[in-house]
Design a protein around this nucleic acid. Structure first.
Lengths: 193, 193
DNA sequence: GCCACAGGACAGACCTGTCTGTCTTTAAGC
DNA sequence: GCTTAAAGACAGACAGGTCTGTCCTGTGGC
């Protein structure tokens, strides 16, 4: 099954998941993608109208995979607060992988200046989904906690989301984990106070 | 002086400041740079050994300019706390410029995977400098404040730095200012508590 | 005369996307 | 069971354009 994946489309997506993340959008050529997918060029263009549309499919696949990673990691924590802060524990684990290169979505977005493109819309959709997930985790903390939050919940969600983005981006730049620990500590304080 | 800048090197740098920021590194060709600089190609390669080294010079110039913007804005605030939080006010002003496209350094860094390259080193140097500046602003808050911080100061600096990165990146992605306001509010809380 | 510069040709590599032709698999008709 | 047709994949040439970097010629200031 994994040796010879029947579906050429699936092979292309899996190659794109690897190459677009590691090398970036512009730095990865169609020729490399089809070569490493063992697919003919005409076959590629039968399945995808353009490199840009492959990138959209790549981001959609990446969204599913990454959110699964995150949710699996978060679900393994015992309490609502541990689950909320577990986002940062997950990022630390994720970053420890040798092939970590920051957020797949932001890396692509920074290569595509135009805001109203299919690619940029896909990035925003992903981040909206992530923010919604943070919101649900915070709601559970709120429901179970003794002290209700003194601030509008949506404002706390926004702060936590900004901390998540900052942690990923800063740890990518430095290749170090201290930004993640700092973000986790800040989140802990913001939620408790 | 600005009509015909005598120095070709200066013209090239100024064009790079515009094009690398707006379009990105790979998306900007040498031909476009020399055309918009009114410079011959051979002249370009007399001043810069490669496109990559131009990028390094671009980042150095950008560092000076951006830190000047930041410091001028911060210095206009009356109190140490207002100056510290003034970082976020500056980012809001900066973002309101129509040509805002996020952090010039992180945008370039995301195009260059290799960590130990001249370009990535320049990005780290810039961020170290920014973090040092945050640290000095926080020290002034600490010196003037009635209540000393109950946490190690360096930890607070790390948190504030992560908030700054998150604010810039998230507002770039969404094209909206709420991440900056959320980061400012979070910073306010972290410093006061 | 010297030197830096503008302008532009050029080499060689690489890019996206199209097209031709061959091979393999599947399935339907009889 | 055999033939035939259709679909889809493979291999690779090709067009048309872009890229970086080198080189050559002409020109103007000193």
């Amino acid at each position: 099954m994994s040796e010879i994946e029947k579906n050429p489309r699936q092979r292309i997506i899996e190659t794109a998941l690897r190459l677009f993340y590691q090398q970036g959008f512009r730095a990865t050529g169609i020729n490399q993608i089809i070569a490493e997918s063992n697919v003919a060029k005409a076959t590629f263009y039968n399945h995808f109208p353009s490199k840009e549309q492959l990138c959209v499919a790549y981001l959609q696949a990446r969204h599913t995979i990454w959110m699964d990673w995150l949710k699996k990691s978060v679900d393994s924590r015992p309490t609502p607060l541990a689950r909320l802060l577990g986002i940062f524990d997950f990022i630390r684990d994720w970053m420890s992988n040798c092939d970590f290169r920051g957020c797949a979505f932001l890396n692509i977005a920074s290569e595509i200046p135009c805001l109203d493109s299919d690619i940029r819309n896909e990035v925003v959709r992903h981040k909206d989904s992530l923010k919604g997930y943070i919101s649900r985790l915070l709601a559970e903390v709120e429901d179970s906690g003794t002290t209700p939050l003194d601030t509008d919940r949506q404002q706390i969600v926004d702060m936590l989301y900004v901390l998540v983005e900052g942690a990923i981006v800063a740890s990518q730049n430095y290749g170090q984990i201290w930004p993640i620990d700092a973000a986790r500590q800040a989140a802990d304080r913001l939620v408790k106070h």
